[in-house]
Write a protein that binds this DNA or RNA. Structure first.
Length: 234
DNA sequence: GCGACAG
DNA sequence: ATCTTGTCGC
């Protein structure tokens, strides 16, 4: 009854776009976050055409060990339209966040933050809705342009739109496609890059995303067993 | 009008 | 996102 997303399914694409433009003005692109002790990753998977499943896993930043997790399922209310992803995924993401026993200091989302046509990708939108500091971690580009990224771990080049820097294209591992990092909410670009790299070990994706991906995906049972083991049930 | 287009 | 096994390469 107080869920800000409950009427989204009635929005036309044009109304959704208008709402994005409006909400984008609330995004804070500067650092405004507490001392980060825990980082969470969130991902949304689809069990079928009309059921979304969100998985969130909270890790201790220090050693990247899982501390808590939550899973939520919800009927899909909107189709996938490039640029309007958050209207499809935010409802179930909020549901999963509610179930967590421990709120994270920072949240890494699949997809873009401000690297979006109206500067309100799913990470920024989630940040505005929850107040949490967020970072967008995209596996591919939505908008913006960039030059070649040096093939060295940690190397990055700016992602720009006109004269504005909207993110970074970051090489998290040699020999693989780079990631598209952008501030979601209450985090600057340098800080976003910093924390993403702090969560990267030997894989392309940060551990936060790897855990969330594993659990949200169809073959998530395997990951769940490990989680229950490390964090306890629920 | 013609492409591009997160998950 | 999802449908899906093996396979090429560092």
């Amino acid at each position: 009854m107080t869920n800000p997303t409950e009427n989204w399914s009635k929005l036309s694409p044009r109304q959704a776009i208008e709402l994005q433009t409006q909400m984008a003005s609330q995004v804070i692109q500067q650092d405004d976050l507490p001392e980060v002790r825990t980082v969470a990753g969130v991902d949304v998977g689809f069990e079928n055409r009309d059921t979304a499943r969100a998985a969130i896993v909270v890790l201790r930043l220090e050693d990247l060990e899982p501390l808590d997790y939550a899973i939520a399922r919800l009927p899909v209310a909107m189709p996938y339209i490039p640029g309007l992803l958050s209207f499809r995924e935010c409802p179930v993401i909020l549901e999963a966040l509610d179930k967590l026993r421990m709120q994270p200091d920072l949240l890494l989302c699949d997809g873009q933050g401000i690297a979006h046509p109206r500067r309100l990708g799913v990470a920024s939108h989630t940040g505005i809705l929850t107040g949490l500091p967020t970072i967008g971690v995209g596996k591919s580009r939505l908008t913006g342009q960039h030059g070649p990224v040096p093939d060295k771990k940690g190397a990055w080049v700016p992602l720009t739109d006109k004269d504005e820097v909207i993110g970074a294209v970051l090489r998290t591992r040699v020999g693989v496609k780079p990631l598209y990092i952008s501030p979601g909410h209450r985090v600057s670009l340098p800080t976003a890059i910093h924390y993403v790299m702090a969560c990267v070990t030997r894989y392309r994706l940060p551990e936060t995303t790897r855990w969330a991906d594993g659990v949200a995906s169809a073959r998530g049972q395997r990951w769940l067993e490990r989680l229950r083991d490390l964090t306890g049930p629920a």
